[in-house]
Protein backbone atom coordinates (compact mmCIF):
# COMPACT_ATOMS: atom_id res chain seq x y z
CA UNK A 1 0.00 0.00 0.00
CA UNK A 2 1.13 3.53 -0.71
CA UNK A 3 -0.20 4.83 2.56
CA UNK A 4 3.06 5.68 4.26
CA UNK A 5 4.38 7.59 1.30
CA UNK A 6 1.40 9.88 0.94
CA UNK A 7 0.92 10.41 4.63
CA UNK A 8 4.43 11.15 5.77
CA UNK A 9 4.71 14.77 4.63
CA UNK A 10 1.35 15.55 6.16
CA UNK A 11 2.36 14.28 9.53
CA UNK A 12 5.44 16.36 9.42
CA UNK A 13 3.40 19.40 8.56
CA UNK A 14 1.02 18.78 11.38
CA UNK A 15 3.36 20.44 13.83
CA UNK A 16 1.09 22.60 15.85
CA UNK A 17 1.70 25.85 17.62
CA UNK A 18 -1.19 25.25 19.92
CA UNK A 19 -0.62 24.02 23.40
CA UNK A 20 -2.12 20.81 24.69
CA UNK A 21 -5.74 21.24 25.43
CA UNK A 22 -5.24 17.86 27.02
CA UNK A 23 -8.44 17.22 28.90
CA UNK A 24 -10.71 17.99 26.02
CA UNK A 25 -8.57 16.00 23.62
CA UNK A 26 -8.70 13.01 25.90
CA UNK A 27 -12.43 13.20 26.02
CA UNK A 28 -13.07 14.00 22.38
CA UNK A 29 -12.87 10.42 21.04
CA UNK A 30 -15.37 9.30 23.63
CA UNK A 31 -17.53 12.29 22.92
CA UNK A 32 -17.51 11.47 19.23
CA UNK A 33 -18.45 7.89 19.96
CA UNK A 34 -21.08 8.75 22.51
CA UNK A 35 -23.99 9.34 20.14
CA UNK A 36 -23.32 6.08 18.33
CA UNK A 37 -23.06 4.22 21.59
CA UNK A 38 -26.28 5.77 22.77
CA UNK A 39 -27.94 4.83 19.50
CA UNK A 40 -26.72 1.24 19.80
CA UNK A 41 -27.85 0.97 23.36
CA UNK A 42 -31.28 2.33 22.62
CA UNK A 43 -32.04 1.10 19.12
CA UNK A 44 -30.31 -2.25 19.18
CA UNK A 45 -30.09 -3.36 22.78
CA UNK A 46 -33.09 -1.45 24.04
CA UNK A 47 -35.23 -2.89 21.27
CA UNK A 48 -33.89 -6.36 21.87
CA UNK A 49 -34.75 -6.11 25.52
CA UNK A 50 -38.15 -4.80 24.58
CA UNK A 51 -38.65 -7.72 22.21
CA UNK A 52 -37.58 -10.12 24.93
CA UNK A 53 -40.07 -8.59 27.32
CA UNK A 54 -42.79 -8.87 24.69
CA UNK A 55 -41.92 -12.52 24.19
CA UNK A 56 -42.91 -13.10 27.79
CA UNK A 57 -46.31 -11.48 27.35
CA UNK A 58 -49.42 -12.53 25.54
CA UNK A 59 -49.27 -9.47 23.28
CA UNK A 60 -51.56 -9.88 20.34
CA UNK A 61 -52.24 -7.14 17.83
CA UNK A 62 -50.31 -4.42 19.60
CA UNK A 63 -47.95 -4.82 22.55
CA UNK A 64 -49.50 -5.45 25.94
CA UNK A 65 -47.78 -6.25 29.19
CA UNK A 66 -49.69 -9.19 30.55
CA UNK A 67 -46.96 -11.64 31.42
CA UNK A 68 -47.28 -15.33 30.70
CA UNK A 69 -43.75 -16.50 31.43
CA UNK A 70 -42.20 -18.70 28.79
CA UNK A 71 -45.52 -19.91 27.41
CA UNK A 72 -44.85 -18.34 24.02
CA UNK A 73 -41.62 -20.30 23.71
CA UNK A 74 -43.46 -23.47 24.59
CA UNK A 75 -46.05 -22.71 21.91
CA UNK A 76 -43.30 -22.06 19.45
CA UNK A 77 -41.70 -25.41 20.18
CA UNK A 78 -45.04 -27.09 19.62
CA UNK A 79 -45.60 -25.25 16.35
CA UNK A 80 -45.05 -27.41 13.29
CA UNK A 81 -44.53 -24.42 11.05
CA UNK A 82 -41.73 -23.09 13.22
CA UNK A 83 -39.88 -26.38 12.87
CA UNK A 84 -40.38 -26.35 9.13
CA UNK A 85 -39.02 -22.81 9.03
CA UNK A 86 -36.03 -23.66 11.21
CA UNK A 87 -35.20 -26.79 9.24
CA UNK A 88 -35.49 -24.79 6.05
CA UNK A 89 -33.04 -22.26 7.38
CA UNK A 90 -30.50 -25.00 8.07
CA UNK A 91 -30.98 -26.50 4.60
CA UNK A 92 -31.14 -23.15 2.84
CA UNK A 93 -28.34 -21.57 4.84
CA UNK A 94 -26.05 -24.56 4.52
CA UNK A 95 -26.50 -24.95 0.78
CA UNK A 96 -26.40 -21.23 0.17
CA UNK A 97 -23.12 -20.71 2.01
CA UNK A 98 -21.50 -23.84 0.59
CA UNK A 99 -22.50 -23.20 -3.03
CA UNK A 100 -21.59 -19.53 -2.88
CA UNK A 101 -18.15 -20.38 -1.53
CA UNK A 102 -17.53 -23.13 -4.06
CA UNK A 103 -18.84 -21.17 -7.02
CA UNK A 104 -17.19 -17.95 -5.89
CA UNK A 105 -13.83 -19.64 -5.46
CA UNK A 106 -14.07 -21.45 -8.78
CA UNK A 107 -14.98 -18.30 -10.69
CA UNK A 108 -12.29 -16.31 -8.93
CA UNK A 109 -9.61 -18.87 -9.81
CA UNK A 110 -10.76 -19.03 -13.41
CA UNK A 111 -10.91 -15.25 -13.69
CA UNK A 112 -7.40 -15.03 -12.33
CA UNK A 113 -5.95 -16.72 -15.45
CA UNK A 114 -5.32 -13.57 -17.47
CA UNK A 115 -8.74 -13.46 -18.97
CA UNK A 116 -9.66 -11.02 -21.67
CA UNK A 117 -12.51 -8.72 -20.65
CA UNK A 118 -12.00 -9.62 -17.04
CA UNK A 119 -13.48 -6.32 -15.91
CA UNK A 120 -16.69 -6.88 -17.83
CA UNK A 121 -17.09 -10.43 -16.57
CA UNK A 122 -16.44 -9.33 -13.03
CA UNK A 123 -19.11 -6.68 -13.27
CA UNK A 124 -21.57 -9.20 -14.68
CA UNK A 125 -20.89 -11.59 -11.81
CA UNK A 126 -21.12 -8.85 -9.24
CA UNK A 127 -24.14 -6.84 -10.32
CA UNK A 128 -26.85 -9.03 -8.73
CA UNK A 129 -25.65 -7.84 -5.34
CA UNK A 130 -26.86 -4.38 -6.34
CA UNK A 131 -30.44 -5.47 -6.83
CA UNK A 132 -33.07 -6.18 -4.25
CA UNK A 133 -35.41 -9.12 -4.55
CA UNK A 134 -38.28 -6.69 -4.60
CA UNK A 135 -36.89 -5.90 -8.06
CA UNK A 136 -35.82 -9.31 -9.25
CA UNK A 137 -38.44 -11.38 -7.44
CA UNK A 138 -40.95 -11.03 -10.25
CA UNK A 139 -38.45 -12.29 -12.81
CA UNK A 140 -37.35 -15.18 -10.67
CA UNK A 141 -40.93 -16.18 -10.08
CA UNK A 142 -41.38 -16.19 -13.84
CA UNK A 143 -38.24 -18.08 -14.64
CA UNK A 144 -38.92 -20.78 -12.10
CA UNK A 145 -42.62 -21.17 -12.76
CA UNK A 146 -42.95 -24.32 -14.83
CA UNK A 147 -45.80 -22.93 -16.93
CA UNK A 148 -44.18 -19.61 -17.77
CA UNK A 149 -40.45 -19.82 -17.42
CA UNK A 150 -37.50 -22.05 -18.08
CA UNK A 151 -39.50 -25.26 -18.28
CA UNK A 152 -41.92 -23.78 -20.80
CA UNK A 153 -39.04 -22.26 -22.76
CA UNK A 154 -37.04 -25.46 -23.01
CA UNK A 155 -40.18 -27.37 -23.91
CA UNK A 156 -40.94 -24.90 -26.66
CA UNK A 157 -37.50 -25.69 -28.09
CA UNK A 158 -38.74 -29.22 -28.56
CA UNK A 159 -37.71 -31.01 -25.36
CA UNK A 160 -41.22 -32.01 -24.38
CA UNK A 161 -40.19 -34.02 -21.35
CA UNK A 162 -38.05 -31.39 -19.74
CA UNK A 163 -39.06 -30.81 -16.14
CA UNK A 164 -38.08 -27.98 -13.87
CA UNK A 165 -40.89 -27.60 -11.40
CA UNK A 166 -39.06 -27.09 -8.11
CA UNK A 167 -41.04 -23.96 -7.34
CA UNK A 168 -44.39 -25.73 -7.14
CA UNK A 169 -43.20 -28.83 -5.35
CA UNK A 170 -43.31 -28.64 -1.54
CA UNK A 171 -40.24 -30.84 -1.24
CA UNK A 172 -38.06 -28.75 -3.50
CA UNK A 173 -39.39 -25.20 -3.19
CA UNK A 174 -36.67 -24.35 -0.68
CA UNK A 175 -34.03 -25.12 -3.31
CA UNK A 176 -35.41 -22.42 -5.57
CA UNK A 177 -34.62 -19.99 -2.76
CA UNK A 178 -31.07 -21.31 -2.84
CA UNK A 179 -30.81 -20.74 -6.60
CA UNK A 180 -31.95 -17.14 -6.40
CA UNK A 181 -29.86 -16.38 -3.32
CA UNK A 182 -26.74 -17.93 -4.85
CA UNK A 183 -27.34 -15.88 -7.97
CA UNK A 184 -27.36 -12.76 -5.87
CA UNK A 185 -24.43 -13.31 -3.55
CA UNK A 186 -21.97 -15.66 -5.28
CA UNK A 187 -20.52 -12.93 -7.50
CA UNK A 188 -19.76 -10.91 -4.43
CA UNK A 189 -17.95 -13.86 -2.89
CA UNK A 190 -16.09 -14.31 -6.18
CA UNK A 191 -14.92 -10.72 -5.92
CA UNK A 192 -13.71 -11.23 -2.37
CA UNK A 193 -11.76 -14.32 -3.40
CA UNK A 194 -10.33 -12.60 -6.44
CA UNK A 195 -9.01 -9.78 -4.33
CA UNK A 196 -7.58 -12.37 -1.96
CA UNK A 197 -5.86 -14.22 -4.83
CA UNK A 198 -4.32 -11.01 -6.07
CA UNK A 199 -2.95 -10.41 -2.62
CA UNK A 200 -1.01 -13.68 -2.50
CA UNK A 201 2.70 -13.30 -2.87
CA UNK A 202 3.89 -14.52 -6.28
CA UNK A 203 7.11 -15.90 -4.89
CA UNK A 204 5.27 -18.61 -2.96
CA UNK A 205 3.74 -19.81 -6.20
CA UNK A 206 6.98 -19.62 -8.08
CA UNK A 207 8.59 -21.75 -5.44
CA UNK A 208 5.84 -24.31 -5.65
CA UNK A 209 6.13 -24.37 -9.43
CA UNK A 210 9.85 -24.90 -9.26
CA UNK A 211 9.19 -27.86 -7.01
CA UNK A 212 7.27 -29.28 -9.95
CA UNK A 213 3.86 -29.30 -8.32
CA UNK A 214 0.92 -29.56 -10.69
CA UNK A 215 -1.47 -26.68 -11.06
CA UNK A 216 -4.45 -28.15 -9.20
CA UNK A 217 -2.08 -29.27 -6.50
CA UNK A 218 -0.66 -25.78 -6.13
CA UNK A 219 -4.12 -24.38 -5.71
CA UNK A 220 -5.21 -27.02 -3.27
CA UNK A 221 -2.10 -27.04 -1.15
CA UNK A 222 -0.79 -23.50 -1.40
CA UNK A 223 -3.34 -21.00 -2.65
CA UNK A 224 -6.53 -22.02 -0.90
CA UNK A 225 -4.94 -22.17 2.55
CA UNK A 226 -3.77 -18.59 1.98
CA UNK A 227 -7.37 -17.57 1.44
CA UNK A 228 -8.55 -18.62 4.86
CA UNK A 229 -9.26 -15.10 6.10
CA UNK A 230 -11.36 -14.44 3.00
CA UNK A 231 -13.32 -17.62 3.55
CA UNK A 232 -13.95 -16.50 7.07
CA UNK A 233 -15.22 -13.06 6.08
CA UNK A 234 -17.33 -14.56 3.33
CA UNK A 235 -18.93 -17.10 5.66
CA UNK A 236 -19.84 -14.33 8.07
CA UNK A 237 -21.37 -12.14 5.37
CA UNK A 238 -23.22 -15.06 3.81
CA UNK A 239 -24.65 -16.43 7.00
CA UNK A 240 -26.01 -13.10 8.03
CA UNK A 241 -27.61 -12.78 4.60
CA UNK A 242 -29.12 -16.24 5.08
CA UNK A 243 -30.58 -15.46 8.49
CA UNK A 244 -31.97 -12.14 7.33
CA UNK A 245 -33.46 -13.54 4.09
CA UNK A 246 -36.92 -12.13 3.92
CA UNK A 247 -37.56 -10.24 0.69
CA UNK A 248 -36.37 -13.31 -1.17
CA UNK A 249 -39.01 -15.61 0.30
CA UNK A 250 -41.77 -13.05 0.07
CA UNK A 251 -41.00 -12.27 -3.56
CA UNK A 252 -40.28 -15.77 -4.77
CA UNK A 253 -42.41 -18.38 -3.02
CA UNK A 254 -44.45 -16.45 -0.47
CA UNK A 255 -43.42 -19.29 1.85
CA UNK A 256 -45.33 -21.80 -0.26
CA UNK A 257 -46.46 -24.26 -1.42
CA UNK A 258 -48.32 -24.45 1.86
CA UNK A 259 -45.61 -23.21 4.18
CA UNK A 260 -42.98 -25.52 2.76
CA UNK A 261 -40.46 -22.76 2.09
CA UNK A 262 -41.02 -20.62 5.16
CA UNK A 263 -37.96 -19.23 6.94
CA UNK A 264 -37.74 -17.89 10.52
CA UNK A 265 -37.70 -14.28 9.31
CA UNK A 266 -40.94 -14.73 7.39
CA UNK A 267 -42.43 -16.78 10.21
CA UNK A 268 -41.72 -13.99 12.64
CA UNK A 269 -43.11 -11.34 10.33
CA UNK A 270 -46.27 -13.29 9.58
CA UNK A 271 -47.04 -13.90 13.22
CA UNK A 272 -46.14 -10.51 14.59
CA UNK A 273 -47.79 -8.47 11.90
CA UNK A 274 -50.37 -10.45 9.97
CA UNK A 275 -51.64 -12.78 12.62
CA UNK A 276 -51.76 -10.52 15.62
CA UNK A 277 -49.45 -12.71 17.69
CA UNK A 278 -46.76 -10.31 18.68
CA UNK A 279 -45.90 -12.43 21.71
CA UNK A 280 -45.20 -15.52 19.65
CA UNK A 281 -43.48 -13.49 16.96
CA UNK A 282 -41.21 -11.91 19.56
CA UNK A 283 -40.31 -15.32 20.95
CA UNK A 284 -39.30 -16.46 17.47
CA UNK A 285 -37.31 -13.26 17.03
CA UNK A 286 -35.40 -13.98 20.21
CA UNK A 287 -34.50 -17.44 18.97
CA UNK A 288 -33.34 -15.89 15.69
CA UNK A 289 -31.17 -13.49 17.64
CA UNK A 290 -29.77 -16.49 19.48
CA UNK A 291 -28.81 -17.95 16.12
CA UNK A 292 -27.15 -14.69 15.13
CA UNK A 293 -25.17 -14.67 18.37
CA UNK A 294 -23.93 -18.18 17.73
CA UNK A 295 -22.41 -16.94 14.49
CA UNK A 296 -21.28 -13.57 15.71
CA UNK A 297 -19.41 -14.56 18.84
CA UNK A 298 -16.71 -16.55 17.06
CA UNK A 299 -16.40 -13.73 14.54
CA UNK A 300 -15.95 -11.09 17.18
CA UNK A 301 -13.58 -13.30 19.08
CA UNK A 302 -11.35 -13.73 16.08
CA UNK A 303 -11.62 -10.07 15.04
CA UNK A 304 -10.52 -8.81 18.40
CA UNK A 305 -7.87 -11.45 18.88
CA UNK A 306 -6.39 -10.66 15.47
CA UNK A 307 -6.23 -7.09 16.44
CA UNK A 308 -4.24 -7.78 19.53
CA UNK A 309 -1.75 -9.66 17.40
CA UNK A 310 -1.57 -6.95 14.79
Amino acid sequence: MSLSRSVAPLAAGAASRRSHSGRLQAWLPKLVLAPSIAISLLFVYGFMLWTFILSLTNSRMLPSYEFVGFAQYARLMANDRWWVASTNLVVFGGLFVAICLALGLLLAILLDQRIRQEGALRTIYLYPMALSFIVTGVVWKWLLNPGLGIQAMVRSWGFENFRFDWLVNPDTAVYTLVIAAVWQASGFVMALFLAGLRGIDDSILKAAQLDGASLPRIYWRVVIPCLRPVVFSAVMILSHIAIKSFDLVVALTGGGPGYASDLPATFMYAHAFTRAQIGLGSASAMLMLGGVLAILIPYLYSELRNRRHG
Binding site: R60, R81, P170, G258, Y259, A270, T274, R275, A276
Partner: peptide, 20 residues
Protein backbone atom coordinates in the same frame (compact mmCIF):
# COMPACT_ATOMS: atom_id res chain seq x y z
CA UNK B 1 -62.41 -15.81 13.95
CA UNK B 2 -59.56 -13.67 15.08
CA UNK B 3 -56.40 -13.34 13.08
CA UNK B 4 -54.31 -15.72 15.18
CA UNK B 5 -56.76 -18.60 15.00
CA UNK B 6 -57.42 -17.87 11.35
CA UNK B 7 -53.69 -18.01 10.68
CA UNK B 8 -53.35 -21.31 12.51
CA UNK B 9 -56.25 -22.80 10.52
CA UNK B 10 -54.71 -21.49 7.30
CA UNK B 11 -51.49 -23.29 8.18
CA UNK B 12 -53.28 -26.59 8.63
CA UNK B 13 -55.43 -26.23 5.52
CA UNK B 14 -52.65 -25.16 3.18
CA UNK B 15 -50.15 -27.65 4.54
CA UNK B 16 -52.61 -30.51 4.22
CA UNK B 17 -53.66 -29.41 0.75
CA UNK B 18 -50.08 -29.27 -0.49
CA UNK B 19 -48.76 -32.28 1.35
CA UNK B 20 -48.41 -35.55 -0.47
Amino acid sequence: VRADVQGAIFDVVTNYFNSR
